[in-house]
Structure formats: structure tokens, C-alpha cells
């Protein structure tokens, strides 16, 4: 009788730990998703912050390229004003194509191309674009891990218990990695 009692106690404790373990696992993975989302935003903001400097350094050289410069400033405005990650990433895509135009035009201005400030900004912008791509990749990876836990047994049982639902992936232009590789 006493033995059965102890066995039940031990089983109960083990079960409790399993419940705690899964709760924590969901919490950790959920935090990871939130954190990676924050990372995307950090990089997008850094990108937006770089644009005024770029416009400043380009303005003096590209007197006749008003529309291209305006496209960049407009795209930046859209990025700063965007709400929600989908909108922001879409705005960033616009910005990226506007920037590509600027950099293509810059090819025709040897003085500008030799300007260290401009070179520096161009490198920084490319680097932030890479980082955004990586942050998005990690965001989707984190969601995949989370969703796998939600969908597979025994995770599915705990997901229902704790009211955790599958999360949505970020689904925008996956070929971005290629686009970044443009040689200037």
C-alpha cells in the first residue's frame, strides 16, 4: 500500500515536471519568435536611419536625378510610417529597388563613386539588407520550430492545454537573397 502511494507520488512529480517543461518550452520558443521579430525591426530602422545621409551625400553630385532621389526618400517615408511587419518588409522592398536605381545611376558619376562617404554608406546599406534577410530567416526558423512543437505529439496535447496556436510565417519575395548580390 505504502509502496503504491510512493510510486504515485513520484509519478505525479515526474508528470508535473513534464507539464512545466512543455510550458517553458512554449514560452522560450515564443520569446525567440518575438525577439527575432524585434531584430528585423532594429535592422529596418537602421536602414531607414542611413537613408538621409545617403541622400545628403548623393544630392551634390546628382543634380539631374531628382526623381530617383525622391523615390528613395518616399520609400523611406513609407518604411518609417509602415505598421506591422508585413507592411514594413514590403516598404523595405520598395526602398531596396529605389536604392538599386540610385546605385546604378551612381555608376555614371566617377566623383561620387570615389567618394569615401558614399562608398561607406553603400556598404552599410548592403550589410543591413543582408542582416534583414538573415533576421527574417531566423524569424521563420523560429516559427517553424514553434509550429512543429504545436503540431506533433505530445506537443499538440500541451499546445491545446495552454492555448498555443500555430504562428504565421513571413511570406514575402523569397528571392531576396539573390537580389542583394547585385554587383555595383
Amino acid at each position: 500500500m505504502l509502496l503504491i502511494f510512493w510510486i504515485l507520488i513520484i509519478l505525479g512529480i515526474i508528470l508535473l515536471f513534464v507539464f512545466f517543461g512543455y510550458y517553458n518550452r512554449f514560452a522560450i520558443l515564443g520569446n525567440r519568435i518575438d525577439n527575432s521579430l524585434a531584430q528585423i525591426n532594429v535592422q529596418l530602422k537602421r536602414r531607414a536611419d542611413l537613408i538621409p545621409n545617403l541622400v545628403e551625400s548623393v544630392k551634390g553630385y546628382m543634380k539631374h536625378e531628382k526623381s530617383a532621389i525622391k523615390a528613395v526618400t518616399d520609400a523611406r517615408k513609407a518604411l518609417v510610417g509602415a505598421h506591422g511587419i508585413e507592411q514594413k518588409v514590403e516598404a523595405n522592398r520598395q526602398l531596396e529597388s529605389a536604392l538599386k536605381t540610385i546605385f546604378a545611376i551612381a555608376e555614371g558619376y566617377p566623383d561620387l563613386k570615389a567618394n569615401t562617404n558614399f562608398i561607406e554608406l553603400q556598404r552599410e546599406l548592403t550589410a543591413t539588407e543582408d542582416k534583414i534577410a538573415y533576421a527574417r530567416q531566423f524569424y521563420n526558423d523560429s516559427i517553424l520550430t514553434y509550429n512543429n512543437l504545436c503540431k506533433t505529439f505530445p506537443g499538440i496535447f500541451f499546445a491545446n492545454l495552454y492555448g498555443k496556436r500555430e504562428r504565421q510565417y513571413l511570406q514575402i519575395a523569397e528571392s531576396e537573397k539573390k537580389k542583394v548580390d547585385v554587383k555595383f
Partner: peptide
């Protein structure tokens, strides 16, 4: 490059 990879790997 390392910063980008830390973002990719967490």
C-alpha cells in the same frame, strides 16, 4: 558578416 550570421543563428 558575423553580425548577419548571429541574426541568422540567434
Amino acid at each position: 558578416l558575423v553580425e548577419g550570421l548571429t541574426l541568422a543563428s540567434g
